[in-house]
Design a binder for these strands. Structure first.
Lengths: 357, 357
DNA sequence: TGCTATTCTGGCAACGTTACCACAAAAAAT
DNA sequence: ATTTTTTGTGGTAACGTTGCCAGAATAGCA
């Protein structure tokens, strides 16, 4: 662990001179420059960022606090953040507070990020406690939000219009002749849930389909919840279609349907919001509405960096990106039936789908 | 951004006293303790970790450097690392150097991690340059490895016996009557690839099946590669089964098979190493060999923390965990056919599969 | 030759924290 | 009564870096 002192000594110069050469700032003769650079190479010197930051230098690091890195949605989001951050010379510290609201980790990560003096923060969490907001404010640490606003605090926000996306999806189902469409989601004080529920109701009403409250079950986001809700649903009625608010719910529903020997899409259609990552590459089956995760990650990072660099100063901005429907086979569309022999013409070309390089 | 000086001043004590109270170490009267704690609360003081670390204190942070957080394998691995790290009071900085060997990011992240003075490092990368090893050595920064050894450097290692796992998988195929089994993998100087190729050949030989070199294609890990290899393969021959070295390859293969109108599993069986994350929850189709990612993450972190704390000092350890075969439907097993009506009895109960809470 | 610019160099303070020391007061042991 | 130990407190020096300043050497210009 060589320090700048070692470098200076080895090059036979003072520390300030070495510092100037290393940072390439200020005067230094060619002669001295060479010697210092040689010493840096010899000692494999890397500056101590901690010490630098203590003098007030930015850490060039941003934090990303999300629920669950295992969820492909967040994973894609994270790569979007990383891509944009890197383009601006920032590094990203990903903190996955972990499945389902582990408050303890949320707090631990918030403190850790602040203590380590990051330059800014991308937040997906809705704070479980208001104390966090005041923590950020007091240090005036720039923060931006993804997905959900933080009620009462005016951060920049990038979100996706899943309400409209849901409307598209439900209209698609109605267009295929489905009328009794069930909705499976989380319990209701929920931002993401509310958008989808609103879209669901709006699409039905505008199509003149009555909203049947017994078709709406709101119990949770997990696979387990989707499974339970579907079983309960099937005990009472037989819907034409099931709209799951998220992919885990849809996966649980699919399992319950299999167990009940109800065939998808022949007997019931199944759709959801957000995609299945690798699973959709393997077997492009489920018709979904996709949020543009990667782009959302990039955009929110751009907003944050604007704030960090002071490029933008002003009232909070809100960027709303459209959701994109991907029609596949899980609703037994007419199109699909008529073109069954061909290789899913309704799916985008695979060239576009595979961005794994 | 209150400092300890502010706290001390507000409490009417010296900085050392404040420090002692905050760290709960050394003497302090009840009276003073109260006042300092009140000041901490009032000012929302959080210690500056940077400054602490400059005095030589451990940062209680470990770095995790992986290829691709979007891959569910790595995502699960990461949560394993986080779980164990948290259990010991460490935080984790995840750095996803990103799809397919972005050397630039690898380097940038290595430097960033070292500069930020983490306590230890979990590495999955095989260094693209030897300079990294010497970097770590010189700072004697503890590091451990996951998946692959670093040739020439004796780090602790946790890996999975994918050779044996592959043997199980191929034997399973042979047991179902498949003889002409194709292998699709990456180009050959590859650790992971070599294990799987070896297992493949070993299983065939021990079953008395001749290894046909024209059935072995080694072009890459990507979906695109699997797609291309499969098309090329089908142009020349028609195998009984396809063994993909990884899930992306399998996904590409599945796509090519669909396009060629070859049905899985009726006409050709398809298996691979590693699972499909959410996709397998939705549609448990592909028979795979799974590495215990989460456990691997936990174990490797335990090894690292042993090194950091000095609990273990000695020669490098190697932990080899078994792979687990998950039989599903993609090889048209006899079992599956005979029990078709039932709900996948060969799959573990969903209670075990769903760990999303 | 002098005089001001320009280029180059190194010493020193400061960032926020803690380890170490010195000292004072109280408590305990002689 | 004294010495020793325990308890409580605050000052100071580092950690590695950079900004600021002072000064030396060189160059440019009368």
């Amino acid at each position: 662990m060589a320090t700048i002192k070692d470098v200076a000594h080895r090059a036979g110069v003072g520390v300030s001179t070495a510092s100037r050469v290393i940072r390439n700032k200020g005067y230094a003769s060619e002669e001295v420059r060479k010697r210092v650079e040689q010493a840096v190479a010899d000692l494999e010197y890397l500056p101590n960022l901690l010490a630098r930051s203590m003098r007030g230098a930015p850490t060039k690091t941003i934090g990303l606090l999300i629920y669950d890195i295992v969820n492909p949605f967040f994973a894609n989001l994270a790569t979007g953040v990383e891509d944009m951050a890197h383009a601006h010379g920032f590094n990203v510290v990903i903190c996955s507070s972990h499945p389902w609201n582990s408050r303890e980790r949320e707090k631990s990560y918030m403190q850790m990020l602040i203590e380590r003096k990051i330059d800014g923060l991308v937040l997906q969490h809705v704070f479980s406690s208001e104390e966090y907001a005041s923590l950020l404010e007091r240090r005036n640490l720039p923060a931006v939000r993804i997905l959900n606003p933080q009620p009462g605090y005016p951060y920049d926000l990038v979100r996706c219009d899943t309400r409209q996306g849901t409307i598209d999806l439900i209209r698609h189902l109605i267009g295929l002749g489905h009328q009794r469409i069930a909705a499976l989601g989380p319990p209701m004080p929920s931002f993401q849930g509310a958008d989808r529920l609103a879209g669901y109701q709006e699409a039905l009403q505008s199509a003149g389909v009555e909203v049947d409250r017994s078709l709406i079950l709101l119990e949770g986001w997990r696979t387990r919840d989707g499974y339970n809700m579907t079983h309960r649903l099937l005990k009472e009625t037989r819907p034409d279609a099931i709209f799951a608010f998220g992919p885990r719910i849809a996966a649980g529903a699919a399992c319950a349907l299999r167990e009940a020997q109800v065939r998808v899409p022949e007997e019931v259609a199944l759709v959801c919001v957000d995609d299945f990552g690798l699973g959709s590459e393997l077997h492009p089956f489920m018709t979904v509405v996709r949020q543009p995760e990667h782009e959302m990650g990039q955009q929110v990072t751009q907003l944050l960096i604007d704030r960090i660099l002071g490029t933008y100063i002003g009232p909070p901005r809100e960027v709303v990106l459209p959701a994109r429907m991907v029609v596949r086979q899980s609703c037994g569309s007419k199109r699909k039936e008529s073109e069954q022999a061909q290789s899913q013409p309704q799916e985008n070309s695979h060239e576009q789908r595979w961005d794994d390089d």
